[in-house]
Amino acid sequence: MFRPELAVPKESRLPAILTLLIGLAYLIVGGFEVLSSLHLIPPIVGFTDLLGGILLMIISSVFLTGVKPLLKNDQEGYAFVAVGYILAALLFGLQILVILTNALGWFLHFENWVSWNIWTDFTPSLWMFIILMTGTGSVWAIGNMRDKIMGVKKEDSQ
């Protein structure tokens, strides 16, 4: 059976820093959600689910575990980054589905959905993933642009 090899960057320092930032962001947001849900800090809108906070911290631990191998230029680090993204995407996708079904209940004027609004379902797992993807997309776009510019400069110098 043909098993295609994965193409991952050879140089992993920048991905390591990015992974560290993502991991820390998930850890901080997850920590705040846990503290807020336990009423140890003033309540924050959308930060009410204790288990949701713990799940974010688990995702953070997956990202953070990948930092060390990435700093050593070990490809194994990308496995943690990939699984971190998959888990974050899973929670994001789930929350999108929850919003869609709640919107359907609100649209049909069902009793339990009359007071529903989208902000009640705008949980950290949702917006964290949006930030994550925006950040990753930006880094990828900047990297691409830099490669193109550097490539042009190299061609010019030749």
Partner: peptide, 27 residues
């Protein structure tokens, strides 16, 4: 050769992270 399946197994079957990830998926 390192394929996606091996890559995922490295984390999903991880000694310490395997169980928490299982709990996230169950939740």
């Amino acid at each position: 050769k390192w394929i996606l399946s091996d890559m995922l197994d490295r984390v999903l079957l991880h000694r310490y992270l395997g169980l928490p990830i299982f709990l996230v998926i169950m939740w």
